[in-house]
């Protein structure tokens, strides 16, 4: 089966409970001393206050994670892919509630409820002129975005090129919460993706196949894909990860580091 190879050269993740690398490492290793408290707020000094006020807490988390991977010393990513299964679903639900009672819709809320709104603010705040896309692919969202990163890199000659992927999702709000089958410890995760094997980082390969076992399964709540992917990256002794979506199974495995 064909497999695709990428290297995750850097990552950053945010939730109100965890934002430091060591905190996420402890989370991945199941080593958290005490229950994490929700006290963090993402600080975005590089986003103009008039733009920043438009961002939801989730949008701020996404831009914070992205911002951690955009130091001045590093080459700019050739593209940025924002990926979220449900996007700004909190705003959408509020708009739908207003529509239901025929109340006028908030223009600001409407403009920010679209799927590429966070990417748009990112591009204005960071003066990004490279391509930005916004992906939603149901339970395949995280893997589809990484496949998108792979394909964009694969058609380019430059071996040093990197793509920034930003994943973000919040738990579904009322009245949709009973349909939510994902537990979100990660509010936003950003990764830098490269095809170069020489680059420092975590080299991984993935393949996808159609699922054969498509009989109805009882829905089970499980850790969201971004969370599972981050755990896979951080757990030294976890060589593989299987992410099953509705119709496909994505199989991930870590590759030997060339530098080791």
């Amino acid at each position: 089966m064909e497999s695709f190879q990428i290297t995750i050269s850097d990552w950053a993740a945010f939730s109100p409970c965890r934002m430091q690398r060591e905190e996420w490492q402890a989370w991945a290793d199941g080593n958290e001393g005490s229950a994490a408290e929700a006290g963090y707020k993402p600080d975005l000094p590089w986003v103009n206050a008039m733009l920043r006020r438009r961002l939801s807490p989730m949008g701020r988390a996404a831009l914070w994670a992205a911002g951690q991977l955009l130091d001045e010393g590093r080459a700019e990513p050739i593209a940025t892919i924002f990926a979220s299964r449900h996007g700004e679903v909190g705003r959408t639900v509020k708009l739908l509630r207003d529509l239901a009672v025929q109340a006028p819709l908030s223009p600001a809320s409407f403009s920010l409820s679209v799927h590429n709104a966070i990417g748009g603010i990112h591009s204005i705040a960071n003066k990004v002129f490279s391509p930005i896309s916004a992906i939603s692919a149901g339970p395949d969202t995280v893997c589809a975005a990484l496949l998108e990163a792979y394909t964009q890199l694969a058609v380019r000659p430059g071996d040093e090129d990197e793509i920034l992927c930003v994943f973000y999702d919040d738990p579904l709000p009322e009245p949709l919460e009973r349909f939510d089958l994902e537990q979100h410890d990660v509010q936003a995760l950003a990764v830098r993706v490269s095809l170069a094997k020489s680059v420092e980082g975590i080299p991984v390969a993935f393949s996808l196949e159609e699922r054969q076992d498509l009989q109805e399964q009882a829905p089970v709540k499980k850790l969201a894909c971004a969370d599972q992917f981050l755990r896979f990256l951080l757990q030294e002794d976890t060589p593989t990860l299987e992410l099953s979506a509705d119709r496909r199974t994505w199989r991930w495995r870590k590759l030997a580091r060339t530098s080791a």
Partner: peptide
Amino acid sequence: GLDSIDALELGL
């Protein structure tokens, strides 16, 4: 420093 979206929002 308000913008066009603010104008619509303020109108509302």
